[in-house]
Design a protein around this nucleic acid. Structure first.
Length: 950
RNA sequence: GCGGGGGUGGCAGAGCUUGGCCAAAUGCGCAAGACUGAGGCUCUUGUGGUCUAGAACCUGCAAGGGUUCAAAUCCCUUCCCCCGCACCA
């Protein structure tokens, strides 16, 4: 048994004195590894282990390869989550208390967490300890947080540059808004943590006939305006006449919608109007002047959109149903005929036979056809109408072609864009925003609305030159895994305006408007550069960290003397900062999760391009997948988050690391599972037992199987190195852990017992184990008799000298012989009911190898046979037979490199092993000397087997 | 809808970039045996189908089609699943 706790404590203590990573400027090649810093309201869970551990493994590996590695870590504290957190504690929110208890936060600590700074400090302290417990070789001397005043100076400097380059712009922006608290609300501020999803709708103005007024209708499908037959309002609701925006026209909308719309534009209510007043009106279609009666629509809701909709009975099941119901009730005074505006193959996306066989009776009214298709009617419940609507909208949008003059053949999205442009251009329509997932409630209880914020500041990632430059940088970057490149390309392309300042939250003040705080993803795009000097400027008063200091240190502008004078910072310190930055920032590897590709990581590249000189632009990004807990996605709501400390306490740091870091390919989700960890522990114990059992072995001369072990080792080193370089940790560690155990077992089963060979093998395995399982590796290294730190050793070298393909081939031959014999024996036992007494293994004569080689090179049976004529020992008749059999696979066969003697020796040497495997006697024979009638069947690498029954 | 990723055995998950040696690594599960007082652990063997004195053959990698001597691997079409769509970390 391995006592993980004990060896972890032991080596963590030793390491703290040893300084695994030098962390200072020296003459080695630098390698800076940074991982996305954790947010300070979340205790670390095993999801963090994935990213931090992957970065740690890389850092440790690169160290062994001779680099001077720096792996620092800090903490993110800006933004609103920690504020919301404090507030919830203050309000005695039980949910959050329960969450914290999962992470073993003591009750008395929870009580104190009413102050954001306290919360931050608590988790920073806790996390720092956890980093050590997990065995991360982080340099915490450089740690800082995003709310440190010195760090704010860097952010201010960064935004000064963005501004000077014209990347900061101002405009309007819709946000989720709480009317009660007068705040923007994000996911953290809503009940049940739902993100308010904002969607654009088109509002069309319909002129009332004979009156200087308009009824406003909301729609998602403005292109169907050509099919409008009437308008619908809710007859039970109250409407208002009002002025909207800056014109002085009179508009009718529902009273409820007026209350919502006022957050998006000026709304001045003039008077209340009953629905009955509107129902008596007739409107004019702005696109074709047709007359549209206003009718009561049973499905119209006063608080959705403007509380009025345009009716397109041909293409909207609800509209069609509403009209038909009115007709049935005798309330339809005039004839209304649906107007079809687009063609689609109805039911195209359905596969259900009963549906497909349904023949709609009226193809010129798709809305009705869709109802028939779903075996329902105009009297169906809303849910049925809704699913018909969804189906119709989807198919029409996907495959529909416009039939309206001027738009013929256009797809619906195309037409939508065109019509929207025309309507808004003429002032017949405008955009409004709605919450797609309404209702959303603020934690205070009020319903969230959409507010259009004026004077919002943005970072303009849409800037053409900036985008082009960023794309260029991306092209030259290493991405792990490479297949994320598509996502990065798409992200860099897609990212456009990003709101950058908000009214609330912790962080750095926005330089162009000091009432605002810089949004918290935007203040963390170049923070990794600060690690290079954070330890040096820790005690420098923030006000001294003027832009010229950063300009000099990070951009090589100006000179040290002048900077020292103008800032009051010590000249030598200024020089050291510059030296440190320029040294460390040459090669950087950035680690993060896949959810950050579309924001943080993309912004990271953009901002480096904007701020730094070319040689400091990003070089490498590694993206790792999430961690599942026993097959489930971890989430607060499921209550299945596994705190990092739990994993480490229960299974040990190294088994957890191996499971989570090396348990899946980089970008795949890895699974935290007890069974998998147990399996890992078993392998580790096997290796340890092997080390402890070394003394039982002899030394002596190397045998064939020892050469095999060395050859396997050589292959292992070569492959693992390749895998590590590509950050394929899973492959690397199946190779090191699982395969090593299998090879050792085979070695022993084959009778291997050379202590030196096994020790050499294990030593290399332990070295390669170090990056992911540092404690266990350290312990094993010392058990092997070493006195150095394995974490400071060199990665094993592979010269290729230990490679022995011949022996490996021979071992393969042994394996396949055993396998084939087993198969045959099983059949014989089944058929004859007898067991084998003796197995004759007959290896093929050398002339057969020549035959194969000749067939491969000549690709012709006749010529190949001819080349054999006259050779010694050749049985031409047999040769002809064999050649004929091989001929049909002539393009597949490959020449065999082993000679008969080698095969013979190889099998002969393994005879005892084969005998044990098969539980019968074994004799090995040369084909030409064998008396067996089956001898002729022997082929190179495929000996003939002759089984004597008992 | 747009964008990104994916669909392989009872399950998880390799292989697909560089088409052939892939019935398909490794692990789990399951079955049999060994060990044990018993269980667990551990070890051995088996685990698509069919047949066989032979060491093989057949079928297979979401569905369909194509390119090729040869496709899980390349191309096209369709279906399905997951993730992201912003001011929020």
């Amino acid at each position: 048994m391995i006592d993980y706790k004990e060896i972890e404590a032991k080596w963590q203590k030793e390491w703290s004195d040893a300084h695994i990573f030098e962390g200072e400027v020296n003459d080695k090649e630098p390698y800076l590894v940074t991982a996305a810093w954790p947010y300070v309201n979340t205790p670390l869970h095993i999801g963090h282990l994935r990213t931090f551990g992957t970065a740690d493994a890389l850092a440790r590996y690169k160290r062994m390869r001779g680099f001077n590695v720096l792996y620092p870590m800090g903490f993110h504290a800006t933004g609103t989550p920690v504020l919301a957190f404090a507030k919830r504690i203050k309000n005695g929110d039980q949910d959050i208390v329960d969450e914290l208890k999962v992470f073993h936060v003591p009750e008395e600590e929870i009580k104190k967490m009413t102050n954001p700074a306290y919360i931050a400090n608590y988790f920073i302290k806790e996390s720092g300890q956890l980093y050590q417990r997990a065995g991360f070789g982080m340099d915490m001397r450089r740690s800082f947080t995003s709310i440190d005043p010195t760090f704010s100076k860097l952010v201010e400097w960064q935004f000064g540059i963005l501004n000077s380059k014209g990347f900061l712009t101002k405009g309007k922006h819709p946000v989720g808004w709480c009317p009660n608290e007068n705040n923007a609300v994000g996911m953290h501020d809503t009940k049940h943590d739902v993100e308010p999803e904002i969607e654009e709708e088109i509002v069309v103005k319909f002129k009332v006939d004979g009156e200087e007024a308009y009824i406003l209708c909301t729609t998602y499908r403005p292109e169907t305006i050509f099919g409008v037959t009437n308008l619908f309002v809710s007859e039970k609701s109250t409407y208002v006449a009002c002025r909207i925006g800056d014109d002085d026209k009179r508009y009718y909308i529902s009273k409820a919608s007026a209350g919502i719309l006022k957050y998006q534009m000026n709304v001045e209510v003039l008077e209340e109007v009953g629905a009955d007043k509107l129902l008596s009106k007739t409107c004019v279609n702005p696109v074709n002047g047709s007359m549209l009666p206003v009718l009561p629509g049973f499905f119209v809701k006063e608080d959705v959109g403007t509380g009025a909709v345009m009716s397109v009975p041909a293409h909207a099941p609800f509209d069609y149903a509403a009209l038909e119901r009115l007709r049935k009730e005798g309330r339809l005074k005039q004839e209304i005929k649906p107007i079809k505006v687009l063609d689609v193959e109805i039911g195209r996306s359905l596969s259900d036979v009963s549906v497909v066989e349904t023949k709609p009776s009226q193809m010129d009214i798709p809305a009705f056809a869709y109802l028939e298709m779903l075996h329902t009617s105009i009297d169906a419940i809303d849910d049925m109408l809704e699913s018909a609507t969804k189906l119709e909208y989807r198919e029409e949008s996907h495959w529909g072609k416009m039939t309206v003059r001027g738009y013929e053949g256009m797809s619906e999205p195309e037409a939508r864009e065109k019509v929207t442009g025309e309507l808004t251009g003429k002032g017949d329509a405008f955009k409004m925003y709605v919450l797609q997932n309404a209702p959303v409630y603020c934690r205070c209880g009020y319903e969230v609305v959409v507010k259009v914020v004026e004077n919002q500041w943005f970072i303009n990632y849409g800037d053409k030159a900036w985008k082009t430059a960023t794309k260029d940088v991306l092209k030259g970057m290493h991405l792990y895994p490479e297949k994320t490149r598509n996502a990065f390309d798409a992200a860099v392309d897609w990212i456009d305006l990003r709101a950058v300042a908000r009214a609330q939250g912790l962080g750095t003040r926005f330089p162009l408007d000091s009432t605002k705080i810089i949004e918290s993803l935007s203040d963390s795009t170049i923070y990794m550069s600060f690690y290079t000097i954070s330890n040096l400027v820790r005690d420098v008063p923030p006000e001294k960290l003027k832009p010229e200091f950063f300009d000099f240190v990070f951009r090589n502008i100006g000179d040290a003397d002048a900077v020292a004078k103008s800032t009051g910072i010590d000249y030598s310190l200024v020089k050291r900062c510059k030296e440190s930055f320029e040294y460390w920032y040459r090669y950087t590897s950035r680690h993060s999760g896949p959810d950050l590709i579309y924001n943080h990581l993309t912004m990271y590249i953009y901002n480096h391009v904007a701020v730094f000189n070319k040689d400091c632009w990003p070089k490498q990004i590694a993206v790792n997948g999430f961690v599942l807990s026993e097959g489930e996605k971890m989430s607060k709501s499921l209550g299945n988050i596994v705190p990092l400390i739990d994993a480490v306490e229960k299974y040990g740091a190294d088994p957890s690391r191996l499971n989570i870091i090396a348990g899946a390919d980089l970008l795949n989700d890895s699974e935290y599972s007890e069974k998998a960890i147990r399996g890992i522990q078993e392998r580790l114990e096997y290796l340890q037992d092997s080390i402890l059992g070394l003394e039982k072995f002899e030394s002596g001369e190397l045998k064939r199987i020892d050469y095999w072990l060395y050859s396997k080792l050589s292959d292992k080193i070569e492959r693992t190195t390749r895998y590590m370089d590509a950050l394929e940790l899973r492959s690397a560690y199946t190779n090191i852990l699982y395969d090593s155990v299998l090879e050792l077992r085979r070695y022993l089963a084959r009778g291997g017992h050379n202590g030196i060979a096994v020790k050499d093998f294990l030593s290399s395995v332990v070295l390669m184990l170090q990056p992911v399982a540092p404690h266990v590796a350290e312990e094993m290294w010392h058990t092997l008799g070493n006195t150095t730190f394995v974490s400071k050793e060199k990665w094993p070298a592979e010269s290729g000298e230990m490679r022995n393909e011949k022996v490996e081939k021979e071992e393969e031959l042994v394996d396949s012989t055993v396998e084939d014999a087993k198969q045959v024996m099983a059949l014989m036992r089944k058929k004859a009911g007898k067991k084998a007494r003796r197995l004759h293994v007959i290896v093929a004569s050398d002339w057969k190898r020549k035959l194969v080689a000749a067939l491969v090179s000549k690709k012709d049976v006749g010529k190949a046979l001819e080349s054999l004529r006259g050779e010694e020992g050749v049985d031409m008749e047999l040769a002809g037979k064999l050649a004929g059999a091989l001929a049909k696979r002539i393009n597949e066969i490959t020449p065999v490199s082993t000679t008969q003697l080698e095969e013979f020796d190889g099998v002969e040497e393994a005879a005892a092993y084969i005998s044990k495997q098969l539980e019968c006697d074994v004799s090995v024979e040369m084909e030409q000397k064998s008396k067996s009638p089956r001898a002729g069947r022997a082929m190179p690498m495929k000996p003939s087997l002759d089984i004597e029954l008992e």
